[in-house]
Nucleic acid binder design. Structure first.
Lengths: 205, 205, 205, 205
DNA sequence: GATGAATGAGCCTTCATTCAT
DNA sequence: CATGAATGAAGGCTCATTCAT
């Protein structure tokens, strides 16, 4: 029992260190020795918990996406109007990235691994689906909440959800690589508005 | 003159080989020897044209994004309605990716390099701006072409262009990593329609 | 007392496990963890009984050669004609190797260690001497039992004993590494006969 | 052409270094860096010629056994009586081992590898067969040369050849590991005489 | 310009051994 | 006595780059 807690703590400690080093140096630029040093553990300890560098990266992706999923589920269950939850979902996402400057580079780094590490690819693939599904659910609720909604809207929800989820990813990517910094949260919110408007607009438009 | 042609041919030959190997093994998984073998040249020859692996990757990014830019400009200059050009821009993009299964992995691989190689980062950053600008121009033309347009639309063009450009990137990313294959062209077109509708919808909506 | 029995049992348990793992993976290919797992004990327990891997190997050699010596002595003391005891010594040796397919590889593996581990080298050196001496004793008895013996024979016993002992080792080695399996007991017996005949043959021959 | 010579020279250079280091430290105790240093080449050069440590060892075994085979064939073809050739074969073998104190430990070290490296095992297996066959040929010639030979002798040649070959190996092993040094050549010659006498002795004996 | 042998710093991983509990 | 997490020195191998020819 105490062992399990200790073990879990160690794993978190290692993930934390790996996150810092991967963000700073990239996955391939990170030496296991760097992670060892950053974690404060010994090399043997690190390898006791993760058999390879790849397994460490895979575990980190699992952990990060799980945390994100958890936050998503929590927000979805909140007793607030769908529109507010949607706004908060997007703004919260932007705020976290903006607050922690390591997060975006780390995410992109891990995303790039997805092509070569099937387990990570699967994680991201599932996460993309879940994120899109979440958007779809919210958008449908938004439609229903709209007084003069129309039948068309519900049918457009799939495309809008995909547009929304994709745009969030794509814009975040741009923000991460942009020469000229911009306010991610604001731009993201504008993008959301355009897409929601596209969802709700009357067929005639 | 003949030398220059020869030289240019060699460079193209090397880019071609690098593209194949990077797509297959990733940048870090690709050894210079692999590219040498794929190119049919010798190691010395390769290093004659590119002083380092990084320079080769950077050159490849330049070449690819230049080609894309060129295609974009050509399409933009075509004597066709803006809506048609927009559709063709997006569909053409999807068609090319679908046709050549190496292209998307290669692009993601090079994109990931942007974080560590400033020159590549700059290339992508500029390209993103140009792509967004292109979208903005097309969307504005679409607004103008719309008989029923309203003042609001032009002001929304920026956000819609960003949404569009981002969504194209984000959706392509999803398509590249998806467990379950889907029709990129079709989904992309649905996304475009949602966003264009959002752009044109009346304020009341 | 019960402790000593327990301790001896543990040591035997560990020797047994080490024998299996060394035979399967070789000394250098065997990890202490493998022996731990095979023994069913814990790592700490193993290190309680043997301070190092080398000590474990050394102990195993001691045990194995002691057992062999014991068997030899027992057979030597049997109330049977020398010729029969010689035959049984060789045949019994072959039978045991043939019965347990792990034994020969294990023996060769440990023999190879002799070069680097002085203690093991000494063990084998002594054992070789004892084995040769045993052969010499038997051969002398065989000479004496021979009605038709001649003075020459006794003087040849040293060489014949060395030839016999060496041939047994060398043939066993060949049998252990041979591509094409052969009947060790039979070949060994043929070899013994040739050498005994050489011992007894008249000078004129 | 010059390249091939250079390449062959390099390989010989590396074999030479590996032989020295393997003899001194054993295969497992030898670090590639030690061989690199001993060879005077660089690590990259070593790995250019041998992809792994195992491949290097395998190559070395090939080379050594080939050389031995070559010497054997040469001696066999010499225009001398069989008995002399047999004596020279054995004495020459002993003389070489005695002259170069590294040779025997090296041979035993490589022999031990045979159990774990199939390629080396095959080499030794074949070599054993060839050596035995060589002995058999010589012994048959010796029988034929004997004026009062008898039919029995030829039939015993197989067993005698095996005894001889095995005894040479076994005695060499004892000599290599012995606490108390002895004269290999002399002992070997005594052993040969016993076995040859066993071969030629009349059935009555 | 072209060739490919040669360089050597670097890195992931292993594993015998230790020790707090 | 027993446990298994922790240690860290060591080593086989890679690969971008160089350079004599």
């Amino acid at each position: 029992m105490a062992d399990e807690q200790r073990s879990a703590a160690r794993r978190r400690q290692i993930f934390q260190a790996a996150a810092v080093v991967f963000a700073r140096q990239g996955y391939h630029g990170a030496r296991m020795d760097d992670i060892v040093k950053e974690s404060g553990l010994s090399k043997g300890a690190l390898y006791w918990y993760f058999k390879t560098k790849e397994e460490l990266a895979t575990g980190l992706v699992h952990q990060m996406l799980s945390a994100e999923k958890h936050g998503m589920d929590e927000l979805m269950a909140a007793p607030r109007p769908a529109a507010e939850r949607l706004e908060e979902l997007v703004r919260g996402f932007a705020r976290e990235l903006t607050k922690d400057p390591d997060k975006a580079p780390l995410a992109l780094e891990l995303l790039a691994l997805a092509q070569n590490i099937p387990d990570i690819r699967a994680c991201y693939s599932v996460h993309h689906e879940q994120y899109t599904e979440c958007m779809r659910t919210l958008l449908l609720e938004v439609c229903e909440a709209e007084p003069d909604a129309h039948a068309e809207a519900a049918r457009r929800a799939d495309a809008a959800a995909l547009a929304l989820a994709s745009a969030v990813d794509g814009l975040t990517l741009r923000w991460t690589l942009a020469r000229t910094a911009f306010d991610l949260e604001e731009k993201l919110w504008e993008v959301v508005q355009v897409i929601v408007r596209g969802l709700l607009s009357h067929p005639a438009a």
